[in-house]
Amino acid sequence: MMEPAEADGKIKRLTGEEIVSLFRERLGDGVVDTRVDVYTNGVRKKPFESVWIRVKRENFRDAVKLLAEVHSPLHISVASGSDIGDEIELIYHFQVYWGMGGGQISVSIGSRCPKSDPRFPSVSDLVPGAIITEREKQEFLGVVMEGIPDGRQLFLSESLPPDVHPWRKDEEELKKLEKYIRNVHDEGV
């Protein structure tokens, strides 16, 4: 199939493995872990790739800048976040090679920060579409996005005090959240 952008000769399309080796080459020790998942669909078993790259927190902004070199402008789907014990993990899900009639690759760049120092570099200046999801991460996980242009509460402003973070799973946070949880089926109202 003729790919429009490729035909223009604008960009060279990399495969998932090539993206991973580019990251390993450019970021060196900054890359902690990588994975390429391939899924097939339909009768024709057409494949698509999903790339997972975990980097150190101090390399996170560099990783996003590097991905923007692969395909620009970057499309951010969302940033997901979860509490994994002593650390908080944020994963930014980007898409590259969109709008080329197929072959889009999902690139998820993840990084962790310790709960004792919950700071994370914001990438809203590089990817303006990230601001909503970064504001959400601040209030749900209690991380501080450093350099976020607009850090107000978003979804919980009318509901919970700013120091309660519903997605945190440690006891200290659960205790704070407990008085807000209503299990209507068990306790009645």
Partner: peptide, 18 residues
């Protein structure tokens, strides 16, 4: 009527009649 599937949340306070 009963809060349905959302019965166990920090942000759902209960059914309307309450």
């Amino acid at each position: 009527n009963t809060t349905g599937v959302y019965y166990e949340s920090y942000n759902i306070l209960g059914p309307i009649d309450h």
